[in-house]
């Protein structure tokens, strides 16, 4: 166990540098299932570097919030990631209630992204923002039910102790619920299709239509950090990471995240995107899964 302050740069480096790997892995899996070669795993790194060097076109209608939105959203997502423990060796300095800060930081990121989308006055981006904030209502209920079940299970209210033990009897329910939330919050199939470029069928992509250059790089990087964040949350919520030796724990965590990412890739290859009016049904199901995990946690365990 390291000193929380000195380990901060290391944690920051892990989040910032490893996150863009995940979308690459997802794309590689999709290419593999479809029998293509696909883009290199490191494609997002190249894209980010290129975007950062590019110029920017800003809508004539946009206020300075159009540029501040992506910046604050990026800070919020990275801040949320820094609260998340990375296995027993990089648990960070948690405090009671830090999970609420994490959830609300993600909400702040959502606010900023939707704000920047509304800046352009485009009906498409309004559509995307409306979808994003509406579906988030159900996702938020699900995620609060999930952390509530972890809190009841472990009797603790800080992330590092909440995520260390296994999720107990409701692990399968919790895993399924959180996986659906992961897909929804990161705008993956079956909620959204990151590959499509038809504005009417998108959520996240349609919100960032008018962004270009460095702000778009911040948005893409933030999205990859968010995907990594949810994968890490899912793995630690289900597996007893805290019971491994420090470096073994890190290894198990990495393997778990890889597994989740490959799972996302398979889901994207095998499922079609849902019709929009079916999305609430799936998210409600995720909420119910987390709720039942909560009930199982209440019923079992020491009382």
């Amino acid at each position: 166990m390291m000193n929380p302050v000195s380990e901060m740069p290391l944690r920051l480096a892990v989040w910032l540098l490893l996150a863009p790997l995940l979308p690459g892995i997802v794309n590689k899996v999709k290419a593999w299932v479809a029998g293509r070669r696909g883009p290199p795993v490191l494609q997002l790194y190249f894209d980010l570097a290129k975007l950062w060097r590019k110029g920017v076109v800003v809508s004539t209608l946009a206020s300075p919030g159009f540029l501040l939105g992506p910046a604050v959203a990026w800070v919020a997502v990275v801040g949320a990631a820094l609260l998340m423990p990375l296995g027993p060796s990089l648990a960070g300095a948690g405090f009671r209630g830090d999970f609420l800060v994490l959830i609300y930081l993600l909400a702040l990121a959502r606010f900023c992204t939707a704000w920047a989308a509304m800046e352009t006055g485009s009906a498409f981006e309004g559509m995307g923002a409306a979808r994003e904030v509406s579906y988030a209502v159900l996702a938020e209920a699900a995620i609060i039910a999930a952390v509530l079940s972890l809190g009841v299970q472990t009797g603790s209210l800080s992330l590092s102790t909440m995520l260390a033990p296994a999720a107990g009897a409701g692990a399968a329910l919790l895993a399924a619920g959180l996986f659906v939330v992961l897909l929804a919050e990161n705008c993956r199939v079956p909620f959204d299709d990151p590959n499509t470029h038809l504005e009417l069928t998108m959520i996240h992509e349609v919100m960032v239509l008018d962004h270009s250059g460095p702000p778009l790089a911040a948005i893409l990087h933030g999205a990859s950090v968010k995907l990594l964040l949810f994968s890490v949350l899912l793995v630690q919520a289900v597996l007893p990471i805290g019971q491994f030796a420090p470096w073994a724990g890190a290894g198990v965590l990495a393997a778990g995240v890889l597994g989740v990412t490959v799972g996302v890739g398979f889901v994207e290859s095998l499922l079609a995107r849902l019709a929009f009016r079916r999305v609430p049904l799936l998210l409600t199901t995720a909420f119910l899964l987390c709720l039942f995990a909560l009930l199982v946690a209440w019923k079992g365990g020491p009382s």
């Binding site: 609430p280 049904l281 409600t284 199901t285 119910l288 009930l295």
Partner: peptide
């Protein structure tokens, strides 16, 4: 579908 799902879930919890 969503209301009936929620009703069903509520009913299940109530049954337990």
């Amino acid at each position: 579908y969503v209301p009936s799902l929620l009703l069903g879930a509520g009913g299940t919890i109530a049954a337990v």
